[in-house]
């Protein structure tokens, strides 16, 4: 019986990942980088883009959610089924940092399962005028997240800097 169980057991773990963040934060560009390994220009996401990435023993079903205000209404429904959250912040957008923080805490407190890993990407690190990682962690008050498993990485979807390390952390979090 155990032999049969092993035979038919699903070897590949399937996880649903949602990518959220304000519009123009770089969510779609990051997903495109994960697939193509290079920068590809994008247009604003109309609603939701879906991408499936196969890794050894892990299949990531990525839902890239449109960041415009009109599309944020669909986030809770998708986020509540999510196995992992990626939150993207535009490191050069000082003006909307508070808005981004408010949305982030709304997702954390009301939309996702608190046991899922949360990856925060401080994107557009290739730009000169931007927040540093430490500044961002303090501004977003990330240490207050408590028991939530989180990590923050500085990334650039143009140069690819930090993207692999960030998602490597995420993948490892699922493999554990």
């Amino acid at each position: 019986m155990s032999f049969l169980k092993r035979l038919f057991r699903q070897r590949t773990k399937r996880v649903t990942i949602t990518i959220c963040g304000l519009d123009n934060a770089g969510k779609t560009t990051i997903v495109r980088y994960l697939v193509a390994g290079e920068y590809k220009s994008t247009v604003p996401t109309m609603g939701v883009n879906r991408e499936v990435i196969d890794l050894p023993n892990l299949q990531m079903d990525i839902f890239d959610l449109g960041g415009q205000l009109d599309f944020r209404g669909i986030w809770p429904e998708i986020n509540e089924k999510s196995d992992g959250l990626v939150y993207v912040v535009d490191a050069s957008d000082y003006i909307r940092l508070d808005e981004s923080k408010e949305i982030f805490y709304n997702i954390i407190n009301a939309q996702i399962n608190p046991l899922i890993p949360v990856l925060i990407l401080l994107n557009k690190c290739d730009l000169e005028e931007r927040l540093s990682r430490i500044e961002f962690i303090n501004a977003f008050d990330l240490p207050s997240l408590g028991n939530i498993k989180w990590a923050c990485f500085v990334t650039s979807a143009i140069t690819g800097e930090g993207i692999y390390d960030a998602f490597r952390w995420f993948i490892d979090a699922f493999q554990e």
Partner: peptide, 16 residues
């Protein structure tokens, strides 16, 4: 082919 009207719609920060 005569339309009633032509519209131009774009994506803004809030939505369409």
């Amino acid at each position: 082919m005569k339309p009633v009207s032509l519209c131009l719609v774009q994506m803004g920060t809030k939505g369409l």
